[in-house]
Write a protein that binds this DNA or RNA. Structure first.
Length: 348
DNA sequence: TAGGCCATCTGGTCCT
DNA sequence: AGGACCAGATGGCCTA
């Protein structure tokens, strides 16, 4: 992305003069050595003077601070003497700053990559209409919460409440997007596939999709789509229309998922189970694996033995739960689902 | 045009 | 000492 010089033009010279260093016009230099940046920013007026010159001291650079300190007129300043920004020091500072900038850039890129991976496992993922960072995090929080609720209390994803949970605290456009995804995606694709290929009773039935969300005034697409691999993998859960469904039988309805995955993470968020290597790489049956994993791993898992149960987490009935932040969810229907996301979180 | 979102630079702080 | 992390500041892009 092209960026223009930061700070107002006058800031640099003002600061430089106030610090008594940097005779050169550094504003003409690259901020980090990359072509897209073209200035040197030292405009932290809100933070007060930046005493860059006081660091990076080499003995050979040590000089007396001769900024008019006559002793009898101005009280001598305490603390380390301020060093003149010699050319050598400037260059060292620049080199260090450039390196730090590069590190920071790559750190942020890594963060964004991780966020992108998170977007992909969200209930609605669209390459064209990306969720913002904050909305991604909010939706992730809601999603985890909603799924936890489904697992813990047998609530149904068919319920209005499930989508409500997903949309809690989201902006209106994002809520519409999510609702649209849930409305369009599963009902017209995945569940019909389930019914077609697996003979799952009720899947895609006329009575409406579990995930369908009564959203009057919902804007028309483009929406993202809810990938089947992101949806329901129903095995071994009573009360669902899919309880007799074998994951192996239905794996054909699950499109491949193109991306490396880490071993499953607990939805409690407090532990990560290091298991066998991710089956995801080139494995069309990953969701089968995930389903099996979930259904064969009790909560709390043995790896949590001895650890204090999370306060009031829905997976640990009996404990008092306090909703974090502004979350306050309503109760909803009965049945169990498990999604592949419950057990797979990307990592770089 | 205002506001939201984003990338980038930057200095400070903490940690190893 | 150097790196990671963080938050503030800034300008660009996009959309309502």
């Amino acid at each position: 992305m092209m960026t223009k010089p930061y700070g107002k033009p006058g800031d640099v010279s003002e600061l430089v003069s106030s610090l008594g260093w940097m005779e050169e016009d550094l504003s003409s230099q690259d901020g980090d050595g990359t072509p897209e940046t073209g200035h040197y920013s030292l405009h932290r007026s809100s933070r007060g003077p930046v005493e860059i010159g006081s660091e990076d001291m080499d003995e050979e650079d040590e000089e007396e601070d001769e900024m008019g300190l006559d002793g009898d007129q101005v009280p001598k300043r305490r603390g380390p003497k301020k060093k003149k920004m010699t050319k050598a020091r400037q260059e060292r500072f620049r080199a260090r700053r450039i390196k730090a900038n590069a590190r920071e850039r790559s750190r942020m890129h890594g963060l964004n990559d991780a966020l992108d991976n998170l977007r992909r496992v969200m209930p609605c993922y669209s390459k064209t209409q990306k969720l913002s960072k904050i909305e991604t995090l909010r939706l992730a929080r809601n999603y985890i919460w909603a799924l936890s609720e489904v697992l813990e209390s047998g609530q149904s994803p068919e319920s209005h409440g499930f989508v409500e949970m997903l949309c809690k605290g989201l902006s209106q456009p994002t809520s519409n997007l999510v609702a649209g995804c849930l409305q369009l995606g599963p009902s017209t694709t995945m569940l019909n596939k389930l019914e077609d290929k697996c003979g799952v009773p009720g899947a895609g039935a006329p009575q409406g999709h579990p995930m369908s969300y009564p959203s009057p005034g919902l804007p028309s697409p483009p929406y993202g789509s809810m990938e089947a691999s992101h949806l329901l993998h129903l095995k071994g859960f009573k009360g669902t229309a899919f309880e007799n469904t074998s994951p192996n039988e239905c794996s054909s309805g699950t499109p491949p998922y193109d991306g490396p995955l880490t071993p499953p993470l607990s939805i409690s968020g407090n532990f990560a189970l290091k298991q066998e290597p991710s089956p995801r790489e080139g494995d069309r049956n990953f969701t089968t694996h995930a389903t099996h994993y979930i259904s064969s791993h009790p909560y709390p898992p043995s790896s949590l033995a001895g650890l204090p149960a999370p306060q009031g987490h829905p997976l640990f009935p009996g404990s008092r739960y306090e909703l974090p932040l502004d979350m306050a969810f309503e109760p909803f229907g009965q049945s169990h689902i498990v999604t592949s996301q419950m057990t797979s979180i990307y990592s770089e």
